[in-house]
Design a protein around this nucleic acid. Sequence first.
DNA 1: TGGGCCCTTTGACTTGCGTCAATGTCAGGA
DNA 2: TCCTGACATTGACGCAAGTCAAAGGGCCCA
Lengths: 245, 245
Amino acid sequence: MKREEFSVDCSACPIRHKAVCSRCEPDELDELERIKFYKFYPAGQTVAIRGEPLETVASVVGGVATLTRSMEDGRTQLVGLLLPSDFIGRPGRTAIEYDVTAVTDLTLCCFNRKPFEDLLVRFPHVRERLLEMALDELDAARDWMLLLGRKTARERIASLIALIVKRSTRPDGSVMGTGTRIELPITRETMANYLGLTIETVSRQLTKLRADGIIELDGKRGIIIPDLGGLLAETGDDDDGGMIF
Amino acid sequence: MKREEFSVDCSACPIRHKAVCSRCEPDELDELERIKFYKFYPAGQTVAIRGEPLETVASVVGGVATLTRSMEDGRTQLVGLLLPSDFIGRPGRTAIEYDVTAVTDLTLCCFNRKPFEDLLVRFPHVRERLLEMALDELDAARDWMLLLGRKTARERIASLIALIVKRSTRPDGSVMGTGTRIELPITRETMANYLGLTIETVSRQLTKLRADGIIELDGKRGIIIPDLGGLLAETGDDDDGGMIF
DNA sequence: TGGGCCCTTTGACTTGCGTCAATGTCAGGA
DNA sequence: TCCTGACATTGACGCAAGTCAAAGGGCCCA
């Protein structure tokens, strides 16, 4: 596995600024700075494989990565979509549970496991933040269970687009208006593996949603949402579910 | 909502003995003892409803509870199965994310949220334990995503039975042999809602697994597994996945 | 002993999504 | 400019699981 060192402006690192350390004291930030390092993976590259020992934890700085579980015969289910500020790895466990893949070019802010765990002992609020993140991921996973177990193909597609709209929105509160254009960060195959569908079904449902005026397709990856409310109505969710910023 | 007080022997409380406090000092145990209290719910009773404010966290002492998400039209997906020693609620959040229902008669060991959170600040290892539990639940949820997204009905049924066998096994290492009989703690409807299927499909696949000699049915709830390896081969999982005790 | 209720099983039929296969689109390289 | 390969769309067809409906059990209680 090829792993190149990659120099990145520290101010972009979410470990420091968002994911872990929004409550850090200056001297704690200095300590985080000392032990962190960056890694870069080109699009398509495998970051980690299930069962492999893992000696680092990391936070996504830029790009998109996926967590997947696969069966021997090739059936694949995406179990997590990692966008900037998301965390990879779990303190206290050495083996990796999922395959991690870079979908786009990917920059990670890494910490070796041992020094990071030492740091958790001294900075309890970092562990508190990790607990919050784990519980948020758990909620997200459970919402996805409803999608995979009970939603129709059309509802799944609408839910995914709504999710990406939501995650594309700045957390500063600037809500997307109408006529928004978003860029799908993933291929049809990745979408299918996330939604528990085939690429053909994904394609057909996107075509149908376009025919029904719910979305407009703009090239292979671009989607324009003329009416966000119309899209949300197609997800099958309660109106307010998760759309509160 | 009827909630009766219920007296229980403290030694059965997993908060004290397993879920949270295996590392507690004696004086910490005393403090936990002081603030805990028990609640009892008869089978079928609603414990909590999504959106409702939640002022307690709890640990399952006896019985089975479920976490579910539902859509307006009635489609329901079970997102968690709570067996003794499992934890309900999340510190730092006041609203409930899921519907919680007692499937069998259920005994909970409860803590009011505020004193429990105060306790977390003073006993950091309790928060460490909560993080471990959250990450374990996250792994379980993601395994279930693979099941819901990609497995056939037959594989889902086999996986559920295997899961219940696994969870019925003592953690002291006594592995179930062949010819084991287990008691399904849930109805066909609950199974269907857990597996993303209909009750008819669940029933048909159970019948087929019996016809193929993978399982034997013993009354409505009992299942005899003549050959555990044969059952595991039907789950679609890697041989060793999760079956290490 | 029988009736009512709930859960489960079974059968006949339907359908949404998967499978297989062909065609379309676009970007990069010779 | 054409070739090539990767990704996406579309169509025809099949099947696994859903839907609708009826017929068992098993348990409680009159």
